[in-house]
Each structure stands twice: as structure tokens, then as C-alpha cells.
Design a binder for these strands. Sequence first.
RNA 1: GUGGGUGUAGCUCAAUGGUAGAGCACUGGUCUGUGGCUCCAGUGGUUGAGGGUUCGAUUCCCUUCACUCACCCCA
Length: 419
Amino acid sequence: MEKLKALKGFKDLLPGESERWDAVASLVRNTFHAFGFSPVRTPVLERTTLFTRSIGETTDIVEKEMYTFEDWDGKAVTLRPEGTASVVRAYLEHRLGLHPLPVKLYYQGPMFRHERPQAGRLRQFHQVGAEIIGEIDPKQDVELLSLLSHFFEQTGISGLTLEINSLGCPLCRPPYRKTLQDYFQVRLGTLCEDCGRRFNSNPLRILDCKKATCKTVTQEAPASADHLCPECETHFKAVQEGLNVLKLPYSLSKHLVRGLDYYTKTAFEMTTTQLGAQNAVAAGGRFDGLVEALGGPATPAIGFAMGMERIMQLLPESQHELPKLRLFMAPLGEVAGQHLFPVLYALRQQGICCEMGKPSAALKRQMKQADRLEAAFVLIAGEEEMAAEQVILRNMRTKAQLHLPLSNLVEGISAQIAP
RNA sequence: GUGGGUGUAGCUCAAUGGUAGAGCACUGGUCUGUGGCUCCAGUGGUUGAGGGUUCGAUUCCCUUCACUCACCCCA
């Protein structure tokens, strides 16, 4: 029989690692809440058109990476490859724009792209994202970046760089794109094969080609930040000033581009050098045209997404610590076992993490089990103790033992072992 | 989709053209009601799968699959 196993690019999260994910999730909750963001959860399955209209028909994601299939009613549906489109869809569907603007939302959950797995890249991966919808003010850009920066500070991850750029808007991007194509037109011979393709499909992409030969060509290429319309230029300047006021470190990256079509103006990435080729830990930008493109009123917005798997790889070891077992109860014989069983339940109801051994097992064996589970305390209830209406409570670290009466046992235990 | 690397016990890895071993882990004993340490023993592998060469293949060759890294793309 064929061995059953998880699909390529899909991973199980086992005890040990799961707790670390929970810890990061709760850090997300606290941090994002402090910055005024509310959580949303949207379905993982959406109509395919949501993504083709938002991400862009000709992007690689839409063309060859989406898990798309026909639903029972014959309609094309897709496992979401990213989160922003769904959030905007929900924003429009539930008329969240009727709330005071801007609306600030965040989400976390699995995304799906059929790519070849490699370091920091899976087919089911997890993102945490935040969006500010309904406000064009560059202060929103700065607020969002301050959240990003503060969050990573809280994680203890070091060695991150915030890079920013401006991609322009529908007014200044087309002429810039033309300028760029003119520049590359006469240099096509020196570009790599991939860049030859990009020249027509997405000339901006040539700017972040990794090949050395292309890099020498792109070095002198015109930068979008130098070809902005007055509005975009003012906006970009204001963002930089805002970052300076908050003393947030960043660097201007003239050749930073985005993979999804909906981005405008401010674009940014949080990168690391410790993760191999997949060096972006978080990325995002302004998407002032997306809400309208999905059928809503013209509404400016900005957001980012962070890759959970990449964050987990960078998280310092100190964050791995697991909660330990507080109490292990070792009954010797059925009488003790039956007496302790309700006590076990009562202690757990108080939120105390405890386990109980098998009454038929020898004390030595139960002690060993308690040790393996890293129990802080062990409760020993043998025949002698039961006859004397008491139990022994042993502190495993100090080896100190004391007797507790059977009456009011739950209270007696919790008073002794409270952390 | 393209290219490179690697597949031996649950984990980390040895070894040899003559049908496999260690450490860790696990189970038990040493220790008749008190854990960690020591020592001893035990469980555990059709050497990823299929085919070929050979008297004989885990080792050499081919194919395939899986994992992995990189390209592409992207968080």
C-alpha cells in the first residue's frame, strides 16, 4: 500500500514548533492591537476572478501558481495565494467603508501557491498582513512602517533592513516605464535570457535581476523615484520625513519593485541576509487603485504581509521554551488512583497543568515518567499515606517533601505549587 | 517549468563488490515505595523503489520517486 504522507510543500507543525507559532501569533495580536488594527478572518477559498482582477492577469502567480479548480456548481474557485484581495473584498461586501476612515485591519492564515518548494518557500505558507484602507495621507505609510518595525523589534530578530522606494501612480508610471524600456532597448544584448522576456512583460522586474551582468546594466538605469509626478514626489518625501521623525532606520532602494500589479507609490521590503535566496521577511506597499478595481469607490490604501515561516526561521532560540508540566500525580494502587482522579480534574479546572500515572505502575516507574515530563512537583499517594489520610508532595528540583492531608487536598496542592 | 546535491534504524551518521554498525532516543534490569548519573541487556533497517552488470550489489550502471538547494517567482 502506498505510504500516506503530507503533500509536497505542505508541512505538519508538531509539538515543539507549534508553541512557538502560538507565541508569535499572540505577539501579533498584542502589537497590532496597540497600533489600532482589528483582526479579520476571511475564507481560504474565493472566486478565481477576485485574484485575476487584483493581482494581475499576467503575473506568474495568476498564470501558473494558483490552486484553481471548478467547484460543484461549475464556477472557478481558487485557494487564496495572498491576503489583501480577500480583505478588500470583505471591506466592500460588508461596507466597512461606512465606518470612520481609515479602516485598519489585520489577518493571519495560510496562503497557497503551487511553486517548487525551497528554503523559506512552501506551497501552503502562512502570512500575517495589515491593511489601512481609506486614507491617502503619507502619515499612514509611516504608521504602518512603524508597526512593522516595532513588531520585529519585539520578536528579537536582528539584522533586518527596511528598504523603501516609490513606484509612482497611473499618472507617472507609464512614462517612466517607457523611459526604462528606452534605456534597456539599446542594451538588450547584454541582458540575460530572463530579462529579455521581462523587457516586454514587466521591464521594472529587470531592475532586481540577480545576475551580475544585468546588475551592471541596471546600475545606471533610470529610477522610478526620479521620475515621479509632483504628487507622488511630495508623498514620497513626506514618508521619508515621517520615518526620520520617528527615527526609524531605512534605506532608499532605487530598484525595489513589487510582484503584484496593484501596488502604487510607496513600496517597501524588510529583508535579511540570513535566509538564503528568499530574503524578504515582510513586504508591501500602497495600493491606491485596488479597491476601485474590485468594484468599489476610489479608495486609497496601504498594507504589508509578513512570511510566518521565514519569521520562525529567524526567531532566536530563547523563544523556543515550552511550558513545563507543573504536577505529576503518582498513585500506588487502585484506591489511591480512584481518589486522585477527581483531584486531577479539579486542578486542571484551575488551569494547573498536571498529569497522572498509572496506579498499577511501580513508584520508580512513575517517578521516571514525571522526570521525563519535566514535572516541577510530584504527588505520591501510596498505601501507607492513604491509610494515614495524607499524601506526599515532592519538589523535584529541591527534593524537599512535605505531607498534605487528604481533606481539602485540591486547595492544599494549589497553594503549594502555585508558580 | 529548469539545473545541482542527497537518499542506510525514530534522529544524527559510519562501513564494505561477500546479504549492515555506532551514538542519541525508546523498553527493561542494575535500584522489593522515590527521577536525573553509571553500567548491562533488549527492541528497531527487504540500505527510498524498480531494473541491469556480477557467482554475489547496500556499494558499480540506468530509470524512477522522495527530500533538499538554487534559478524562475515571491512573503
